[in-house]
Simulated scan of single mutants.
Amino acid sequence: MNKIIKENYPVSKLPEDLREGVESSVVTVTIEEGNGLRGARPTIAEIFARRRPPFKSKEEIDAEWRRQRDESE
């Protein structure tokens, strides 16, 4: 895997989204090759693995939908 390191790189040369929150005028930039899968759509397993608790049961979700539907009527 290739890796490029640029020390004392001017922040003004960075893309705007990378400059956000940087208060220094120079930074160290490290660029590493990815595995080629970055940006690819996640699999269902990856999506479920990223979920954060609390997890709701089917019954809890159905009850929530019923409650919202009843409130809107």
Rank of each mutant, 00 (worst) to 15 (best):
I31E: 11
E32F: 00
R38S: 12
P54S: 06
E59H: 06
R38A: 13
A40N: 11
G34F: 03
F48L: 12
P53A: 13
I61S: 11
R66G: 05
G39W: 05
E16K: 14
R50L: 08
D62E: 14
P42A: 04
T30V: 15
R51M: 15
E23L: 09
F48M: 09
E23Y: 08
V27N: 02
T28R: 14
R50T: 07
S24Y: 00
N35S: 15
E59I: 09
D17R: 13
T43V: 08
A49M: 03
E23H: 12
G21K: 00
E32H: 01
I47G: 08
F55W: 08
V26E: 10
S57I: 07
I31S: 06
P53E: 10
G39H: 01
V27I: 14
P54M: 05
S57G: 13
E60C: 03
R19D: 10
R19K: 15
P42G: 02
I61T: 14
E46S: 04
V22C: 01
V27Q: 05
D62F: 13
G39C: 11
E20F: 06
P42L: 02
G34Y: 04
I47D: 02
G21T: 01
S24W: 00
G36D: 05
R51V: 10
K58Y: 12
G21C: 05
S57P: 12
R51A: 09
S25V: 11
I31F: 03
V26D: 03
E64T: 08
E32W: 00
W65K: 13
T43A: 06
A49R: 05
P42T: 00
R38W: 08
R19S: 07
R52Q: 15
E32G: 01
R19N: 08
G21Q: 10
R19P: 08
L18F: 11
A49P: 03
E60I: 01
I47F: 03
E64W: 03
R50H: 03
A40D: 12
T28Y: 05
A40I: 02
R38H: 10
P15V: 05
E20I: 15
G36C: 02
S24K: 04
G39S: 07
K58N: 10
V27M: 02
R66L: 14
W65V: 15
R66K: 15
G21N: 09
P42K: 07
I47R: 03
S25N: 14
G21I: 00
G34H: 07
R50C: 06
A63F: 02
